[in-house]
Simulated assay, not measured.
Amino acid sequence: MEFKVTRGAGNVWEARPYLGTDRLTGKPIRPYKSWPADLDEKRAQALADEWIAGYAPASSSSSSKRLSSMLSSYVHDPQRGFSQATVSTYDGVVRNHIAPTIGDIPYDELKPYEVTAAYRILLSEGPGRKPIGRNTLRKAHALLSGAYRVWQRQLGVNPMLNVPAPAPDRLRPFALDDWDQDKLVAALADDMAIGGTDRESIKRRTTAFAGFIALNQALRCGEVCALQRRSWRRAVHDVYVEATVSEKPVLRRQPSPKRESVGAVSAAPDVERAIAEHIAWQDRWMAKPDQYSCLVTDRPNGGVMRPSTLSRYFSEMARDLGMPAGTTMHTLRHTHATWLLMNGYDMRTIQERLRHRDVATTLRLYASVMPGRDSAAASGFAEAHAARKEG
């Protein structure tokens, strides 16, 4: 179908094409989506065409009742209020997991046993198929459950009420031990001392500084990429985390999707000194640096760096240093939290520093590395047996 993007409020590009009539409500289907104002019309139109091509409005009078199509309509319905990140995640769930298993079943004929059978298939390995993680399966379950809660009003039934939620993965955070920490910290310091401004020097020093900040401030990769110079609040000696960087549908800095992720993380004197030295070095090769320039960037205009690029650079560095297999930027956040636990800091302090929603989240992730748990259990068992022997 043909339609044109137009300028809307705030000068953003937007589209609201007519896609037919909803067979359930009789109302016209006119999905809405917008794109950043700084795109040119050709790029905005291309993104709009790509969006509508995958929309598949299953509720229109001429469209299929297939579950995958109905879920696509549900995900892209502006009334649902999903963030762009959530839409992207659910699109992937529908395309990669639901469509190949139960996607062709009419949405009003789905049975609970068909859903549980699909879950078993997705969790098992098959020809040309790797099993998915339980947390990924839980996203599929959340999508199906939410959609059928809405559809239940028209269908009169909800098959998901009889489908138990998949158990979550048992998460065990991967953290670097003391030896690897010392080796990494020394390597980061060496690369942060690079004074050159050629392309390779900028890559190496920026990657090292990003790793240093992630390790010391317990930040996620996207949060590191979103830091601006003004994020460092010298007067109160902290780094204020308020945003992340998304790469879909376009590269952009955006507010943190989770309210609890926003907050100040105190910075030690060594960290503040490193930030000041990094800014002074950036001033030598950036075109017009200001308070909005990114702290972690390889661009002369101070623009945001792709998290996927930074993650790849750091993984290459870790591999060259001989770090354990699987060491990533997020490993540094786990290492920070694990070190705090092993050195006696209380769980509330760690929860606030990691900006978790609550202490329960922190406990679920890090209780397995709390010091003394295993030795206390061993001592208690031995003492009980000794007491019975004496008695």
Results as ranks from 00 to 15, higher is better:
Ser315Asn: 09
Ala377Asn: 11
Thr101Met: 08
Val241Asn: 01
Glu277His: 11
Ala264Val: 06
Ala117Arg: 14
Gln291Val: 11
Gln84Arg: 14
Ser61Lys: 09
Ala210Gln: 04
Val250Gln: 07
Pro166His: 12
Glu125Asp: 08
Gln351Met: 07
His356Cys: 01
Met305Cys: 04
Gly222Thr: 02
Met370Pro: 00
Val245Gly: 02
Pro78Thr: 02
Leu171Pro: 03
Glu242Cys: 09
Gly81Met: 06
Ile102Phe: 08
Gly133Arg: 11
Thr136Ser: 15
Gln228Glu: 15
Met317Lys: 13
Lys42Phe: 13
Asp38Lys: 12
Glu242Ile: 06
Pro173Ile: 06
Glu383Gly: 01
Glu14Gln: 15
Arg149Thr: 05
Phe381Cys: 13
Ala367Tyr: 08
Leu143Phe: 03
Asn96Gly: 02
Ile105Val: 13
His141Tyr: 12
His330Ile: 03
Arg229Ala: 14
Pro324His: 03
Val271Arg: 02
Thr361Cys: 04
Pro31Trp: 04
Arg129Asn: 07
Met317Thr: 01
Met323Lys: 01
Thr86Ile: 05
Pro324Trp: 05
Ala118Asn: 05
Lys130Gln: 10
Val245Lys: 04
Ala118Met: 11
Thr197Asp: 08
Thr101Asp: 14
Cys221Gln: 11
Val369Ala: 09
Ala360Asp: 04
Gly54Glu: 13
Asp22Gly: 00
Asn301Ile: 04
Glu125Tyr: 05
Leu155Gly: 00
Asp190Ile: 09
Asp290Ala: 12
Ile132Leu: 13
Ala117Gln: 14
Val304Lys: 09
Pro168Asn: 09
Thr207Asn: 04
Val163Gln: 03
Met342Trp: 08
Thr349Ala: 09
Gly372Asp: 08
Tyr292Asn: 15
Asp358Ala: 05
Lys130Asn: 08
Gln45Leu: 13
Ser34Met: 07
Asp191Lys: 11
Glu242Ala: 15
Gly26Arg: 02
Asp178Trp: 13
Ala287Arg: 11
Asn96His: 11
Val224Gln: 03
Glu383Gln: 14
Gly391Thr: 11
Ser63Arg: 15
Gly326Val: 02
Ala147Val: 00
Thr327Met: 01
Leu310Thr: 01
Pro164Asn: 07
His97Ile: 08
Thr197Tyr: 06
Ala165Leu: 05
Thr116Ala: 03
Leu137Phe: 13
Leu215Gln: 00
Glu260Tyr: 10
Arg333Ala: 01
Arg312Cys: 06
Ser256Phe: 02
Arg252Ser: 12
Lys27Cys: 00
Asn135Thr: 12
Arg306Asn: 10
Gly263Ser: 07
Leu71Gly: 02
Thr338Met: 05
Ala235Asn: 11
Asp374Asn: 09
Pro17Leu: 08
Gln228Phe: 08
Arg252Trp: 06
Thr116Phe: 03
Glu223Leu: 02
Met342Ser: 12
Glu50Ser: 15
Ala367Arg: 10
Gly195Asn: 08
Ser368Phe: 13
Glu223Ser: 01
Asn343Ile: 01
Thr335Ile: 00
Val115Gln: 04
Leu354Gly: 00
Glu316Ala: 14
Ser62Glu: 10
Gly20Asp: 01
